[in-house]
Simulated assay, not measured.
Amino acid sequence: MFPIHENLHGKTAVITGGSGVLCSEMARELARQGVNVAIINRTLEKGVSIVSEIEAAGGKAIAVAADVLDRSSLEKAKEAVINAFGGVDILINGAGGNHPDAITAVETYTEGPSEKSFFQLDESGFSKVFATNFTGTFLTSQVFGLELLKQESPNIINISSMSAYSPMTKVPAYSAAKSAINNFTMWMAVHFGETGLRVNAIAPGFFLTSQNRNLLLHEDGTHTPRSEKIITHTPMKRFGQPKDLLGALLWLVDEEYSGFVTGVTVPVDGGFMAYSGV
């Protein structure tokens, strides 16, 4: 269990995609630290479930339904957060994900009839995946940004990926969007540098989530070939666990620990980026 960061007590964090496997763990830990948590999801019921857990543990949280690609719904969500908690100190842009329409069936192209390759990717699916991961971060940061600037030590945490550094096969839209997240994190850090708003990102390595479980595990729980590749290239020889992200999160959101840190993307990857494969 992490020590309590006293100066986080009473602050308010907005977490998009807050009911997901990784972001819900962040929500629970921030609430344990005394942070008021607003979970924003397209599906209200999923957020309500996490809020119930937080409240049962003695924390304060609300769930708000909003789509990160719909500015008007984000504006309404902001109003709900302000009405509940009075302000916003921390924004975690966790909404994202992938979709079959933006995924190739093969890792490399070969001529002749084949399963879905680059040329069969659906344009609307590609655009939607890119938008959900990148444009949603842009819009949410715009909508909540002015509220953040009203606080003494506000910060934004974007969620990147290993595919931002070296694109993963089969998922070009997701990889391109996460690469854009890294660049956008640096851009915002510079743009807001003199205001006191710090902007950083966390790049999780390979974690088992509801979205990727079928890609990484067989029905009997054994590793798929793609999963074996990942473990082979991860020096710590395991997948990440949601709690593995919490130390980096607490460091980045606590002004006393990282007050001079902005514009960085922190890999939490079990050494994946460090390993050349040889």
Results as ranks from 00 to 15, higher is better:
F2Y: 11
E6H: 10
N7D: 15
T12C: 15
V14P: 11
V14Q: 13
I15M: 10
I15G: 07
G17W: 05
G18I: 08
G18Y: 11
L22C: 14
C23D: 15
E25I: 01
E25G: 03
A27H: 04
R32D: 04
N36Q: 12
N36T: 05
L44H: 11
L44V: 04
E45N: 05
E45T: 05
G47S: 05
S49K: 14
I50W: 05
S52N: 15
S52W: 05
E53G: 01
A56T: 10
K60H: 15
A61S: 09
A63H: 06
A63N: 04
V64T: 03
A65R: 03
D67Q: 06
V68I: 14
V68G: 09
L69P: 13
D70E: 15
S72K: 15
L74T: 04
K76M: 11
A77L: 06
E79C: 02
A80N: 10
V81T: 10
N83W: 03
A84R: 12
F85S: 03
D89Q: 06
D89P: 09
L91G: 10
I92M: 10
N93T: 06
G94W: 08
G94K: 05
P100A: 15
I103H: 15
T104N: 12
T108Y: 14
G112Q: 08
P113G: 02
P113N: 02
S114F: 00
E115K: 11
E115N: 08
K116Q: 05
F118N: 05
Q120I: 07
S124M: 13
S127E: 14
V129I: 14
T132H: 07
F134N: 13
F134C: 14
G136Q: 14
F138R: 14
G145T: 06
G145L: 07
E152F: 04
S153L: 05
P154K: 12
I157R: 06
N158Q: 12
I159T: 11
A164Q: 08
Y165E: 09
P167S: 09
P167T: 08
M168W: 14
M168E: 13
K170T: 12
Y174Q: 11
S175G: 06
S175C: 11
S175F: 06
A176M: 11
A177L: 10
S179Y: 06
A180V: 10
I181Y: 09
I181R: 03
I181Q: 06
M186S: 13
A189I: 01
A189L: 01
T195G: 07
V199Y: 03
N200S: 03
F206T: 01
S210E: 10
Q211V: 02
N214W: 02
N214C: 00
L216P: 01
L217Y: 00
L217H: 01
E219V: 03
H223C: 03
T224I: 08
P225A: 13
P225Y: 10
R226Y: 12
R226F: 13
K229G: 04
I230V: 13
I230D: 04
T232R: 15
T234L: 09
T234E: 09
P235H: 00
F239V: 01
L250V: 13
L252V: 08
D254Y: 05
D254V: 03
Y257P: 00
V261I: 08
V261P: 04
V261H: 02
T262Q: 02
G263Q: 00
V266C: 00
P267F: 00
P267H: 00
S276V: 11
G277S: 07
G277H: 06
G277L: 04
